[in-house]
């Protein structure tokens, strides 16, 4: 949690915006997840978002769905993804934020009433500073927030273009580290253009909070990232990055990912 705050403070002082790439843990392989994170930081990422694959990712479009399928097929599990993060944690300066759907969290380490606490502690131990759970609205999130607060892990809550003002306030109050603003009424995925209402949406959220607001879902090109960076504190890029790696395997995937993030870095 502290690392995320320190990162945004440093960026704010420098007048810079956060670049946050998303990769799916275990894709293209578990062995490459750690080296991929190092390469992304090297290419200019300020925070790193790592997905834990789930069989039924409701908020995700085709690119991240396919990445989840590949990761699961190659044996990715929550403990293995956390281990991949832990393997490079000491060499990373950027805070790592883990994204998982709620069910793998409530089954962690055998399920039961202590599963959430076990997951949060394991995430902390592996070096995760924050958690994002896209199917856990703020109303159902008390159990996770309590456990995370004990462990010093930030719970980052999503806000959407359809969230009415009273929900934006609720979300802004609950969210820690930063607020994840969903740019489109839709799932994750590559899009040609950013929605025209985005500027207004981010502005509305900024009216009710002083916490950093990062925008994700659908940001696909350096030009779009630049536009978003003008109005938000950070830019999250997932599907386009995964797409940029394409069918490349091994070190070639790392090279392509780093090249794409460098282009985003120049733009942001």
């Amino acid at each position: 949690m502290e690392r995320i705050r320190a990162t945004f403070n440093r960026l704010r002082r420098a007048g810079r915006k956060a670049l946050i790439p998303f990769v799916m843990g275990g894709d293209p392989s578990l062995a490459l997840t750690g080296p991929l994170l190092l390469a992304l930081e090297e290419a200019g990422a300020d925070l790193l978002e790592v997905g834990i694959p789930f069989s039924d990712p409701l908020a995700d479009g085709p690119v991240i769905q396919a990445a989840s399928v590949r990761a699961l097929a190659r044996g990715a599990t929550p403990p293995r993804v956390l281990a991949a993060v832990a393997s490079v944690r000491r060499r990373l300066h950027a805070p790592v934020v883990c994204l998982s759907y709620w069910n793998p969290i409530v089954q962690f380490g055998g399920g039961g009433p202590r599963a959430v606490e076990r997951f949060v502690r394991a995430a902390r131990a592996s070096g995760c500073s924050g958690l994002i759970v896209p199917d856990l609205p703020v109303e159902e999130g008390a159990r996770l927030r309590d456990a995370a607060a004990q462990a010093g892990v930030a719970v980052i809550v999503l806000a959407a273009p359809t969230s009415p003002p009273e929900r934006l306030r609720l979300i802004a109050r609950a969210s820690q580290g930063f607020i994840y603003y969903v740019s489109v009424t839709g799932t994750t995925g590559i899009r040609r253009a950013m929605p025209p209402a985005l500027v207004q949406g981010v502005r509305q959220l900024k009216l009710v909070t002083t916490k950093p607001v990062c925008v994700g879902f659908g940001i696909s090109t350096p030009a779009q990232a630049r536009t978003v960076a003008r109005i938000a504190d950070g830019v999250i890029v997932g599907s386009a990055l995964i797409h940029a790696m394409g069918r490349a395997r091994g070190r070639a995937a790392l090279g392509r990912a780093a090249a794409f993030v460098r282009r985003l870095r120049v733009a942001v």
């Binding site: 199917d135 856990l136 159902e140 806000a159 959407a160 359809t162 929900r167 839709g186």
Partner: peptide, 8 residues
């Protein structure tokens, strides 16, 4: 347990 987008 759904994405925020459909909560409203």
């Amino acid at each position: 347990f759904v994405p925020e987008t459909v909560m409203a």
